[in-house]
């Protein structure tokens, strides 16, 4: 056929459009997302945004602006009240609950309160992310050692997390997020409990991960960090995107 290009049907049998190919260079897409908490009002109001594959983005805004809610929605731990959400080419809204763990394996989440098992060793905490994926023991040991060396904690592998400082615990959390070599890293106020020096070090680590091709989204209210690293910043105010 003259001028026709080969088209491959999507999972519903419809031809894929050139626009979709363009969209595949987008890692995170939100269309008119709303989130309302019963009794607490609207946390997100008509949020539409895109994050490209391999991009480093800050999400900023004052406390209560909806930064954490936005990250939780991207992670699948909160469901939006309305709107559409496409992560890594999959529509999150249509994903059954039983598929959520498999999507979380593609996303590393660094929590403000670290969410570590304090009575377990550094090694066990980092290895947990691979164990749940069924990674073979030999491979698991190699990858954990690599992740710990990356955050410069290899000498603490057999220490219990409760014996580490706040900065070291944060690095364990980062090692746990990167060890599974995720497509995306989401970090919710990762520097919230750290001094300025450790904050810089932490963002440097995320930058290194980003340099290897991982998409990184960091929520922070620290304007100094945003200015210093000169990356795109999406500003939220009262649940709305006001710039970025």
């Amino acid at each position: 056929m003259k001028g026709s290009r080969p088209v491959f049907p999507d999972y519903r049998g419809r031809p894929r459009l050139p626009a979709l190919r363009r969209a595949q260079s987008v890692m995170i897409q939100l269309f008119h997302v709303y989130k309302t908490f019963e009794g607490a009002g609207t946390a997100l109001h008509d949020v539409t945004l895109k994050v490209a594959k391999g991009e480093f983005v800050f999400i900023t805004g004052p406390s209560g602006a909806g930064k954490s809610t936005l990250l939780n929605i991207m992670f699948g731990s909160e469901a939006p009240t309305g709107g559409q959400l496409i992560i890594d080419g999959r529509n999150y809204i249509k994903i059954p609950r039983s598929d959520v763990p498999y999507l979380r394996r593609r996303i590393g989440f660094v929590f403000q309160d670290f969410k570590l098992l304090h009575d377990k060793t550094v090694f066990d905490n980092v290895a947990l992310a691979l164990r749940v994926m069924g990674v073979e023991t030999g491979e698991l040991k190699k990858r954990v050692a690599r992740a710990l060396s990356y955050v410069r904690l290899q000498h603490r592998a057999n220490f219990k997390v409760e014996t580490l400082s706040g900065g070291e615990q944060q690095r364990v959390a980062i090692a746990r997020a990167v060890v599974k070599e995720p497509a995306i890293i989401l970090a919710d106020e990762p520097t919230g409990n750290l001094d300025p020096h450790l904050s810089l070090e932490t963002i440097e680590l995320f930058k290194e991960v980003n340099n290897k091709g991982t998409t990184v989204v960091v929520a922070t209210h620290d304007q100094g960090l945003i200015d210093r690293f000169a990356k795109r910043a999406i500003v939220l105010e009262q649940g709305r995107v006001v710039s970025g």
Binding site: S77, P101, R104, R105, L116, L117, L128, V132
Partner: peptide, 16 residues
């Protein structure tokens, strides 16, 4: 519950 929550957050299936 912390342990269960963390396992779930790092991608463990319910059966795991």
């Amino acid at each position: 519950q912390d342990e269960i929550e963390i396992m779930s957050l790092v991608g463990a299936t319910d059966n795991y």
